[in-house]
Amino acid sequence: MQDALDIINSEEIRNYFGGRRQTLWDIIERVVKEGLGIPLQTEAIKTLAIQGNRVFEWIAEFDERTVTSEQFNEFRKAAEAWIISQASLSSGQLALAPSSRLSAHSQTTPSNNGRGLAGAGSVDNDFDDW
């Protein structure tokens, strides 16, 4: 994964796909569209990964005796965002060519290596929080 990120972050790739201002997600969308001829909704996939991770973290750390209403509402918001993103992908917005079907599940199983979700909105390195 790190090798792939290094390639995408290389000056040549960033310049070819629109300059230094493009995020990794923008570059990935453009490479998939040009290379495979299909649109890829990276925003929905990113939401699945980040919000799904928040749901799993909340469940893993759940302690009925200490959960506050605010913590539960954050969990609920993450779960709702995940459900909406999953529905958008399942409803055909991730329309792939028949010969190159990809599983939405295989694209949404990140590992954050215990680093949490700090910086999830980072533009410079969108994958820091995986």
Score class of each variant (00 low, 15 high):
Arg20Thr: 09
Ile38Ser: 11
Asp26His: 06
Ser91Met: 14
Trp58Pro: 00
Leu117Lys: 04
Arg30Pro: 03
Trp25Ser: 00
Ser91Val: 08
Pro110Ile: 02
Glu12Asp: 01
Ile45Asp: 06
Asn113Val: 08
Glu57Ile: 02
Ala78Thr: 02
Ala87Tyr: 03
Tyr16Val: 08
Ala44Glu: 13
Ile59Asn: 11
Ile45Gly: 07
Leu89Trp: 06
Ile27Tyr: 07
Ser106His: 12
Phe72Glu: 02
Ile83His: 04
Leu48Gly: 07
Thr108Trp: 00
Phe127Met: 11
Ser69Leu: 02
Lys33Pro: 04
Gln93Phe: 12
Val123Gly: 09
Thr42Gln: 09
Asp26Ile: 00
Asn112His: 06
Ile28Tyr: 12
Trp58Tyr: 00
Asn112Trp: 00
Arg14Glu: 10
Gln93Met: 13
Thr47Arg: 15
Ala104Thr: 04
Val123Arg: 09
Gln2Asn: 07
Gln71Phe: 03
Asn112Lys: 02
Ile8Gly: 00
Gly18Asp: 05
Val32Ala: 15
Met1Gln: 13
Gly116Thr: 00
Phe62Gly: 11
Ala95Cys: 13
Arg65Val: 15
Gln22Lys: 03
Gln22Asp: 05
Val55Ile: 08
Pro110Val: 06
Ser106Met: 11
Ala104Val: 07
Ala118Asp: 05
Gly121Phe: 12
Glu74Val: 01
Ser99Thr: 11
Arg115Thr: 10
Thr68Gln: 05
Asp63Lys: 15
Val32Asp: 14
Thr66Leu: 14
Gly116Ser: 02
Leu102Trp: 11
Arg30Phe: 06
Lys77Ala: 01
Ile27Arg: 06
Met1Tyr: 15
Asp63Gly: 09
Gln41Ser: 09
Phe72Gln: 09
Val55Asp: 03
Val31Thr: 15
Ile38His: 06
Ala81Leu: 06
Ala118Tyr: 04
Asp6Glu: 07
Gly92Tyr: 08
Gly35Met: 14
Ala104Gly: 03
Gly18Phe: 10
Arg76Pro: 12
Glu61Cys: 00
Thr47Cys: 12
Ser85Lys: 04
Ala60Pro: 07
Trp130Met: 14
Trp82Gln: 09
Ile50Ala: 01
Pro110Asn: 07
Ser103Leu: 12
Gly114Thr: 06
Asn113Lys: 12
Ala118Lys: 01
Leu48Met: 09
Val123Met: 07
Ser69Arg: 01
Ile28Lys: 07
Asn53Leu: 05
Ser99Asn: 15
Asn112Cys: 02
Asn113Cys: 07
Ala120Val: 05
Gly52Pro: 03
Arg101Asn: 12
Asn125Pro: 14
Gly18Ile: 11
Leu48Ile: 05
Phe127Pro: 10
Lys33Tyr: 10
Ala95Ser: 15
Arg30Lys: 10
Asp6Gln: 00
Gly92Asp: 07
Gly19Asn: 08
Asp63Trp: 12
Val31Glu: 15
Thr68Pro: 01
Ala87Glu: 08
Ser103Ile: 12
Thr23Val: 02
Leu24Lys: 06
Glu57Gly: 02
Ile59Gln: 13
Trp130Leu: 15
Leu89Asn: 07
Asp129Phe: 14
Gly114Lys: 11
Ser88Lys: 09
Phe17His: 08
Ala81Asp: 09
Gln22Tyr: 07
Lys77Tyr: 04
Asp124Ile: 08
Trp58Ala: 03
Arg115Asp: 14
Ser122Lys: 10
Ser90Cys: 13
Val55Glu: 05
Val123Ser: 10
Pro98Phe: 11
Trp58Cys: 06
